[in-house]
Design a protein around this nucleic acid. Structure first.
Length: 199
DNA sequence: GGTGGGATTAGCT
DNA sequence: GCTAATCCCACCA
């Protein structure tokens, strides 16, 4: 029996929501297909007090969605070619968010393979930009709600063991243990060990 | 008005 | 291991 997560789930600190999201199932419903994927790796970004957060320098056009209501998605463009997806948390104006870093594909896999141009299931959603591509999301999805009829996250009572580590790919606040992943999952991302000293 | 670097990835050596 | 790909924004002048 799966239950959809409501606004109150998201309206808490990102450091609380992030580990709580592990094991939950993201569902995307379109006319063509239904995609389902279990969240296996996330990172918390704590808003204006977090040097590594896009919200650190206050509200701008780019990060506007982060300062809006919780339960919406913030998608940003980076490195000239990639998009990454966050879930806005905490209260309006706090600028907190949880970055989705890896998912375990459960349904709609054919569509993901088509978009990712690879057959390996473990290579479909094992990175923040990969999962956005696999799900077919982009710039125009910035600000969409997870509380509506097309897109939501549900709890199917799966309760994974969780490991915490420093966040990947940042240059400020590098020691805070705000990356969380399902212990031993083969679907987590594989950070470059020569650049990032994380498990 | 110019510029440095980025919450990354894939492909080559 | 190294680096190209390629756009945007924050920051400095």
């Amino acid at each position: 029996m799966s239950k959809r997560l409501g606004e109150s789930f998201y309206r808490r600190d990102a450091s609380v929501v992030a580990p709580a999201l592990l094991g939950k199932v993201l569902v995307l419903q379109s006319d063509q297909e239904t995609m389902r994927a279990r969240i296996v790796e996330v990172e918390a970004y704590l808003g204006e007090r977090d040097e590594a957060s896009h919200a650190f320098r206050g509200r701008t056009l780019r990060n506007d969605v982060m300062f809006g209501p919780p339960g919406h998605i913030y998608i940003y463009f980076t490195y000239g070619m990639h998009f990454c997806m966050n879930i806005v948390t905490a209260k309006v104006g706090e600028g907190q968010a949880v970055l989705l870093r890896a998912l375990e594909p459960l349904g709609g896999i054919a569509a993901m393979i088509e978009r990712r141009q690879t057959n390996a299931i473990t290579n479909l959603c094992n990175g923040p930009a990969k999962l956005v591509q696999a799900l077919g999301l982009g710039r125009s999805d910035n600000g969409r709600s997870l509380l509506g009829a097309q897109m939501w996250i549900e709890d199917d009572d799966y309760r994974p063991q969780v490991t915490a580590s420093p966040r990947v790919g940042i240059s400020k606040a590098v020691d805070l243990p705000l990356r969380f992943f399902i212990t031993g999952s083969e679907f987590v991302s594989k950070p470059n060990k020569s650049r990032y000293n994380v498990p």
